[in-house]
Design a protein around this nucleic acid. Structure first.
Lengths: 264, 264
DNA sequence: TTTTATTTGTCCGTATGTATA
DNA sequence: GTATACATACGGACAAATAAA
């Protein structure tokens, strides 16, 4: 018997307890809302205002409970919400820490990485990890409209903001059309300028697909995230003015640091 | 760097020659590419063709090694790539299983959920988990353009394809403008029809933001995924013809089952 | 419930070809 | 030309988790 079938399994169903918390007493701001929700809002507000700065440790749960005049469990419920939102990160035995706000990353446009990062007042950085010429796998060939085995240039990039790694990206270009693209990129340090070197004045995003997985060990090290961290995987194909594919890229974002903003 | 350009395997020394032509000619298709890459392509192709069906177990690593005439480590290297691509999922002690192909989910358009799922030949399903009127938190109020504490309707939805849960969504609507929206939705079972009931003939996507986190326990149970699974979090605001916010939704997708397709 | 076999995960090592300083 | 580092491929052993007897 096929042992798998995670889904399709006959789930007798968790009752999915719709939390109907007893509306607890007092609390100044929003009467009528559940207490843990009010506490969550207050802590979130404190983080937004800067009372608790990025990277700092929140007061212990017992202290927060005393400060807001609620039970520690109510604080824990509130912190769970903030954790889910990505605002804080609990560390067992150490404390709960304020996460850095996620960088809003516009996608599906022509915007340049350095402009995106610069717009948020941070210093954009990046480097070419590796570049090589190889032969196209079936998958890459299909995306670039080439035959499997055709020569392609592979670029491995890493990009960071204020020295914090944001994403690593693997790009493939047709080696016949862009010979030595890896060396060109190493010199020009920009995809736009690299393509311009080969006479491509304009290009646009042809297709974009977004998924999420857990990080693998190599990317975990390069992105400086814990193993099993979630990452955003963005597969994209850029095409020239005639719609012909120029390059295909798989970008892995550290999900905890980035928020993709889709422009419609 | 030009690695693997001339990767000839005609060695004189060790008698490893008889490997390549056992049962399956792994080398026939793409000479020059690294061996593990060829094996990965072949297995991926076998999955695509249907030789290994969704949910079934792949032959053991030792069997695959024998079948392709390579070492087990080479097979492992190939499987690691497929795992990274989300095609297979290894289970220690049990085997390596073929993942279900991810449902392509267009986003940023007006497409209806049932149409999206139906287009892939699956049966769309869904149900209202919970609906209630409450008071807006700071965050919800900001997104809906209301004052904190204003009455809002909260809808908790779950959506599935062929009985497999795809996502759970939390939607907030202004209770003043849409009184009893939860009961209306329970009857009409569609957001479009619910809004139509209140005289909203047309609405569009105003803003969309995408992140990823690890699933929390409640969603893990409802989505029927393992704890610590990655989920795609899509925050969206829908607006009316005048650009005024109608509703805001946070959708959590089981990342292993969905692939967001951005349309540009 | 215990045992046994199977399968993946993680080490060790060896050999070879390639790229780089 | 030489030395070094790295990637590929193979061989073996054992641990850990799972499934079946």
């Amino acid at each position: 018997m096929t042992a798998t079938t995670d889904h399709r399994r006959a789930r007798t169903g968790p009752p999915a307890a719709g939390h109907r918390d007893a509306a607890a007493p007092a609390g100044a701001t929003l009467p009528g809302v559940t207490l843990w929700r009010r506490v969550a809002d207050q802590i979130a507000q404190a983080i937004a205002v800067g009372t608790y700065g990025t990277g700092t440790r929140l007061p212990a749960e017992t202290e927060l409970a005393a400060h807001y005049g609620v039970n520690r469990h109510t604080v824990r419920r509130a912190l769970a919400v903030l954790r889910e939102r990505g605002l804080v990160r609990p560390a067992r035995g150490s404390g709960t820490y304020v996460e850095a706000p996620r960088l809003a990353y516009p996608i599906g446009t022509r915007t340049r990485f350095s402009e995106i990062v610069g717009a948020s007042g941070r210093q954009a950085g990046g480097r070419l990890i590796a570049g090589a010429q190889e032969l196209a796998s079936i998958e890459v060939a299909r995306r670039l409209g080439l035959k499997p085995g055709a020569p392609v240039v592979r670029l491995e990039l890493m990009r960071e903001a204020d020295g914090v790694p944001l994403c690593v990206a693997t790009t493939f270009l047709c080696a016949t059309r862009f010979p030595g693209a890896d060396r060109v990129y190493a010199a020009r340090r920009s995809m736009t300028r690299t393509l311009a070197q080969f006479g491509i004045a304009d290009y646009r995003r042809g297709a974009t697909r977004v998924t999420a997985t857990t990080v693998d060990l190599g990317d975990a090290a390069r992105l400086d995230v814990r193993p099993d961290s979630p990452i955003l995987v963005v597969d994209s194909i850029d095409v020239d003015a005639d719609g012909r594919p120029l390059l295909t890229t798989r970008t892995r974002f550290a999900a905890e640091r980035v928020e993709l903003v889709l422009e419609s």
